[in-house]
Design a protein around this nucleic acid. Structure first.
Length: 594
DNA sequence: TGCGGCTATTG
DNA sequence: CACAATAGCCGCAG
């Protein structure tokens, strides 16, 4: 009798499992684990406290592609101290194949088995007669006689016993094979399969980022907040006083005696009217154009900024999301319900730029930051297979050749290109837009086709195979004014979803490659921001990781566009704090220039 | 109490 | 104010 779990490794070897093969896995702390091959040749149940021992042994010896029902399993493993290298995330692949957010086992199974979705059973509130399973098949079989998953299993019953864990792992392995078959039916086989793998890796990354957190220096963060709203209030009364003082700074510019709640847009609008400023709304960009009209307006804009910090990114935010270990944590999601970009809660994705000064590498560490340059037009060239546009991607700044081609200046070319991808129909860029159609007809037709599908409520698939659900179209209002507006909105959505979705897929392929290759350099991805990666590394490896980030981009790009006709570029640098990666400090947004 | 509207922040 | 997201507060309906 050797090390516990060694027998499992031997059994897997005997079953013919080699590195990278799918192996179903189900774990439950305190219960045990189940493991199963896709061939059905081998499955085991283990009743153990420390399930991490067995998983780690198999991981080190065979490094399988673990089939998980969702990244909850990866989170359980990580909490138990085991980080797995690769997986097949059934929920993530389901979202890719079928769109929408819901991806619980019952739905996954029903869609793969072509069962009517309306017949998916829901868990009985508690069996009235206490005869669970009578006349209903074997309660220890996850599948009911009618073909559906047993709801009491999907609702948590799968982890009741080690034997159930084994069968749950067997079913996971079987589901992965069914998913692979479905992906194969989509056409672009290799690329879609590759997307499924990188989407799965992104789920592992999300779990790791949620657990690791982003390094933030609390003292620096509090200093930045104090610069906007003052010292941390000690009491509720002090907080109220600070709030009143901020309000007074604005109201002293108002006619005497007015009572206005600055937090109410309607009341602010009335206030502006009182001082002779009529506006349809009170958004900052509009007020900024009227800043000269009255001193109250500038005071109001300053107030708005402070109010944002006070309510959303202030001391309360730190208390809620910044741990004692100096890590800011939010929940990461591998793909939103729409085009498939990653999302994060806890303000990680919309932190005001001023706060980036508090994102500081830990002692002995540095950040390697990289952001993709002009990712959307480059992706458009790839997904539309527009050779002319692809040629432009050879340049570091692809808007330069596009501008030359159109006979307009760079800024106009850029606005026109973005307008084409977002579905802009108004404004001054329309002439340039028509030139764009003439110069790059393949790409523009690709966008127009997507827009037409969207308008009609027809679903779309991204370059990597993600189903973009449109509709349902409200048939009651077809032809009405509201419907034309809604149809136009769906058109813009469909047009953009193919670009944004494909960009998200390329980004995740890149991130997954960095995650895998960076392990030996102890590099940890701590932030993903749509086209930007922030990697926390031991300082002695920072240059190597910087090179790695570009290598991985080229590798991801090649896997994505095998003929290498489209070039992808990244701006890469090593920094102690995030804010040191200057995005070009410009008075008013829009960096670009890679 | 829930939800749509408005606002601000990010890519 | 074109595409996407998270998040807070206000005002109103139930």
């Amino acid at each position: 009798m050797g090390e516990p779990g060694r027998d499992v490794v031997e059994e897997l070897c005997r079953a013919g499992v080699v590195r990278g093969d799918l192996v179903g896995l189900a774990v439950a702390p305190g219960v045990g684990l189940g493991m199963a091959t896709t061939t059905g040749k081998m499955s085991v149940a283990r009743s153990i406290e420390d399930l991490s021992v067995v998983v780690r042994l198999v991981e080190d010896a065979l490094r399988p592609r673990w089939v998980l029902w969702s990244n909850d399993t990866a989170a359980t493993l990580l909490r138990a101290g085991v980080q797995i290298a690769t997986c097949w995330d059934i929920a993530a692949v389901h979202r890719l194949l079928f769109g929408r957010w819901r991806a619980d086992p019952a739905l996954v199974w029903a869609q793969l088995q072509h069962l009517a979705l309306g017949t998916i059973p829901t868990a009985a509130p508690a069996d009235l007669f206490g005869d669970v399973g009578r006349g209903d098949g074997d309660p220890d079989d996850p599948i009911r006689p009618d073909g559906h998953l047993r709801p009491e299993w999907s609702d948590g019953g799968w982890c009741a016993t080690p034997e159930r864990l084994r069968r749950w792992a067997e079913l996971a392995a079987r589901v992965a094979v069914l998913q692979q078959a479905r992906l194969g039916e989509l056409g672009d086989g290799p690329r879609v399969a590759s997307t499924a793998r990188s989407e799965s890796a992104a789920e592992l990354l999300c779990v790791e980022m949620s657990v690791d957190g982003l390094p933030v220096d609390r003292a620096v963060a509090e200093g930045i907040i104090a610069g906007f709203i003052g010292r941390r209030p000690r009491t509720e009364a002090e907080a109220a006083y600070q709030r009143a003082r901020r309000d007074a700074e604005v109201l002293r510019h108002a006619p005497p005696g007015v009572e206005v709640d600055l937090r109410s847009p309607g009341q602010v609008k009335s206030l502006l009217s009182r001082i002779g400023v009529e506006v349809p709304d009170t958004r900052a960009w509009r007020l900024r154009t009227l800043q000269e009209a009255h001193p109250l307006i500038e005071a109001l804009l300053v107030w708005r900024k402070a109010e944002r910090v006070a309510t959303t990114f202030g001391y309360g935010w730190l208390d809620e999301h910044l741990g004692a270990d100096g890590r800011l944590r939010g929940v990461w999601t591998g793909s939103d319900g729409a085009a498939g970009r990653m999302t994060a809660s806890g303000g990680l994705h919309n932190m005001p730029a001023e706060m980036r000064g508090a994102v500081v590498a830990e002692p002995g560490h540095a950040f390697v930051r990289a952001d993709l340059g002009q990712i959307e037009p480059r992706v458009l060239a790839a997904i539309s297979r527009d050779n002319q546009l692809a040629r432009a991607t050879a340049e570091d700044d692809m808007y330069a050749p596009v501008a030359a081609q159109l006979g307009v200046d760079r800024a106009t070319a850029k606005v026109a290109m973005l307008g084409a991808m977002y579905g802009q129909t108004t404004g001054h860029g329309l002439r340039a837009l028509r030139r764009l159609e003439a110069a790059y007809p393949v790409a523009m037709r690709h966008l127009a086709d997507a827009a037409r599908s969207g308008q009609a409520g027809r679903d779309l698939r991204t370059y990597g195979g993600r189903l973009i659900i449109l509709g349902p179209v409200n048939t009651a209002e077809v032809g009405t004014h509201e419907d034309r507006g809604a149809a136009a909105a769906r058109g813009r959505y469909g047009r953009n979803a193919l670009v944004q979705g494909a960009a998200a897929e390329l980004f995740k392929t890149w991130a997954a490659t960095v995650r895998a290759r960076g392990t030996r350099l102890a590099a940890r991805i701590v932030l993903c921001l749509h086209d930007e990666l922030l990697v926390h590394v031991p300082i002695e490896h920072s240059d190597a990781v910087a090179r790695l980030l570009d290598d991985c981009l080229q590798e991801a790009g090649h896997r994505w566009v095998p003929d290498d006709s489209v070039r992808f570029v990244a701006d890469i640098g090593v920094f102690e704090r995030w804010s040191d990666a200057k995005q070009e400090v410009r008075p008013n947004r829009d960096p670009d220039i890679s």
